[in-house]
Design a binder for these strands. Structure first.
Lengths: 333, 333
DNA sequence: CAAACCTTTGCACACGGTTGCAAGAGCGGG
DNA sequence: CCCGCTCTTGCAACCGTGTGCAAAGGTTTG
């Protein structure tokens, strides 16, 4: 590894003919520096290419400005969009995102949080997996903020942002009913995350409420290929469903494609489909998928703004509504 | 902002009844510590929840372990995939990704690099935009590594990873010709990034080589919606093209959807389409797009492995080939 | 048994900033 | 002219860690 030689405040001070403190004060908003001193410092800093060392500053101030994003499968459209929104809001709040990939295993979420502690991150935002309670307790005890998005399980001291999944699922059911559907199915992944299960339960509960049977099929991760498999299973059943609520859009795209190309079914005439997330692809003219929109920007805003609020000892819940975006994968609308 | 109170090596030392140096040595691979001391330190550290402060360590070692990824529109499929691959490789190399969003403006790339300097990042990887030479010079002078992916312009001391765009474009042309196409078009965005322009030039050059006219249309960013507009423009021309090479897959999806749904053309029978990137959506059965695959994983691997190699003064080029993935948007194959 | 050697350990300084404190400068009012 | 006030500035201590150096202790060798 080659030697790094960044310019330090000392060098700037020497060139400007002032003390190191003066340099520090020049770059500290609200500190007491005369106009003339500031000018000379800035000039020297400019000439030397000086930039405050955030590591050292973070060490002193006990505030690194770093916020860790803990994510797996970050190239998934919904996740990528959320990451983008959060990073934008963080930047507006003069903070910076550190990205930790937890693709390897579930245990790596714990590793990720330890890393966040090592870098003395001001906060961690968990988008995937669920960290062990002992770790989250350590975070909170150390004064690190913690945000859990769509994780559902409770953690003391953390902000938990969730959607009203069950309510949305019920709305999907009613939409299908209004479209005149008779045979209902739910296409789920088999990962069993609480928020995904809540959608399933909400849909089944609506079925019971209206006295209608709901077929449930679960397979694979929440991806396109799982949708393909699920469609193959559901559409070869004795009574073929004419309404499928998919646990997310990616999977719904797989379902739609398979229904159309492999089973020669017309959407929405032969089969109605509703998804969840409202990823960009859902609006493409091949899909025109009716789906529930995750309020991505509001989630990001809420998470980031909470970071600068005073800390409370117990956790805090934030439930948001996913609005139904009507397109063309359900009749009527 | 609430006070953070992380446990320090001093506290661990006190509890374990050793000096602070012993604690530091315990967590420094290769340092000289007796088995017994290490055991007692580890025990105390475990009990207190101690984690080495990477800010302080980075300050001392002059090596933060941080690598900045500078990206705009990071929710784009290709970008998101690349980010994921890089973050995975970085993690394997015991480094960590810092994500800097440059959506705002081109100047923000410079701001991003300054931020990277402030955090004393070991390296910066630029995926979007082109930083000013004065900034990249400062980076290199400071001993920070710099990787430019698909940026094309040269910068001293940096690693530049590019694809053989022109060669790929020529291959696309030949594929169209073999499929019996007569009227060729290139659908480009109007952002004019060198690598995008290279694809256009390569395609046009092939046209000249074979004595065939090539229609070029440029519009908007490299996104789906631009593809929609470009298809509308191209397919209403007096001589309708029966072969369109799209500057990237996202745009190609827009072109295909518009050709099929708005112009009722069959792909590949009435119109052949080739894209670039090989994003996941290209393999979906609605598209089955023939396209050039970016060697995402190899790019990530190359970039990360270069970071741990000794520094050379002048820049280094790395040109990779984008392989053609045959699917069903071109006849024959 | 002494000398030479190796391992382990603590001290003290360094890294690059921030900040409380006190001293100095400048200035107006009585 | 002196007192008191405000503004500015340098000194020095501190944040949490790594590491060269020397001393201490233990072990091997002759």
């Amino acid at each position: 590894m080659s030697q790094k030689i960044f310019v330090s405040a000392k060098e700037v001070a020497e060139r400007a003919g002032v003390s190191r403190s003066a340099v520090s004060r020049t770059f500290t908003p609200g500190a007491s520096v005369s106009k003339e001193t500031r000018r000379r410092v800035m000039e020297a800093a400019e000439a030397l290419g000086y930039h405050v060392n955030h590591l050292a500053r973070g060490l002193m101030r006990n505030e690194s400005g770093i916020v860790c994003l803990i994510v797996s499968e970050m190239d998934t459209p919904y996740r990528a969009t959320l990451i983008r929104a959060i990073s934008r809001h963080l930047q507006n709040a003069s903070k910076i995102a550190m990205l930790i990939n937890t693709d390897r295993s579930d245990a790596s979420v714990d590793e990720a949080l330890k890393l966040a502690i090592s870098y003395r991150a001001d906060a961690s935002i968990v988008l995937s997996g669920m960290p062990d309670k002992s770790i989250t307790d350590l975070c909170v005890k150390s004064g690190q903020r913690l945000v859990l998005i769509n994780r559902d399980e409770e953690r003391a001291g953390a902000l938990m942002i969730n959607l009203r999944d069950q309510e949305a699922a019920r709305r999907a059911f009613i939409a299908f009913q209004r479209a005149g559907c008779r045979s209902f199915a739910f296409a789920n992944s088999d990962v069993g995350t609480p928020s995904l299960m809540a959608r399933e339960e909400g849909f089944c509960a609506a079925g019971r409420e209206f006295g209608v049977d709901v077929t449930v099929e679960r397979f694979g991760p929440t991806r396109y290929q799982s949708g393909v498999v699920l469609a193959q299973r559901l559409l070869t059943r004795e009574v073929r469903p004419d309404a499928i609520f998919c646990v997310n859009d990616l999977l719904a795209c797989g379902v739609m494609d398979t229904a159309r190309h492999q089973f020669r079914l017309a959407v929405p005439d032969d089969l109605c489909v509703v998804g969840f997330d409202d990823i960009e692809q859902s609006s493409w003219s091949s899909y025109q998928l009716t789906t529930f929109a995750q309020p991505v920007d509001r989630i990001a805003e809420e998470a980031v703004s909470w970071l600068s609020q005073p800390m409370t000892d117990d956790g805090q819940f934030c439930r948001m509504t996913a609005d139904l975006v009507w397109r063309k994968s359900v009749r009527g609308g």
